[in-house]
Design a protein around this nucleic acid. Sequence first.
DNA 1: CTTCCATACCTAGCAATACTAGGTATGGAA
DNA 2: TTCCATACCTAGTATTGCTAGGTATGGAAG
Lengths: 108, 108
Amino acid sequence: MLKGHLDAIVLAALESGPAHGYAIIEAIKARSGGTFDLPEGTIYPALHRLEEAGLLSSDWITPPGGRRRRVYALTRSGTARLAEGRKAWGRFAKAVEASLGGGRAWLA
Amino acid sequence: MLKGHLDAIVLAALESGPAHGYAIIEAIKARSGGTFDLPEGTIYPALHRLEEAGLLSSDWITPPGGRRRRVYALTRSGTARLAEGRKAWGRFAKAVEASLGGGRAWLA
DNA sequence: CTTCCATACCTAGCAATACTAGGTATGGAA
DNA sequence: TTCCATACCTAGTATTGCTAGGTATGGAAG
């Protein structure tokens, strides 16, 4: 479960350049150290939703001698939303940590 | 939105001693610096669910000259679950931060 | 050459979560 | 006496991310 932060994570995965769905799954898995091993049924609908919302654009690309892929890129709105998402994460994480209280021994 | 961490936050609010629903709402609001101002429709069903799961116990208390209140306390299972929840939060937060990447400028 | 796996895309339907929006009731203050 | 803070509750709903299925291709293994 990504608890509402999936959008920001997907947008962040596209920050360094366009990518197709399957590659995004691999990128998120790698960046999260294996923690976020997302099923396709999570990513593809999310990509459609983000495109619908104008945060991503997509193009069908057929590399020479390869299969067609749908390549997504951040739009201007998407870049702005990513920045918001990072701020929102910061506030959220701070509030959760304050709420969980204690000596923060679980942070390591 | 508490994104799946509500249970741990509620359990943490009860760590320092039993409390009733309304007081738990106030405690969470205070501890989170006002960020988590939860509606009753969030807390009460959560308390019922946690009790159902054996993580909390409850008693109806009528203080002298006061209204009856339902006072919740952590069970042994609840204490264990809280420890797990803190560990889970630590892992989750680490993975999100790695996934959001960059210079961690949003942490401040 | 055929079989299998990794790649690559998609959707319908479902379970969980936390919310809105309503309801009830009491004690104290204005 | 009217209103607000306290104090509890639930039905229904939006969103989220999942399971579980489907389709198809290219390359490697046998």
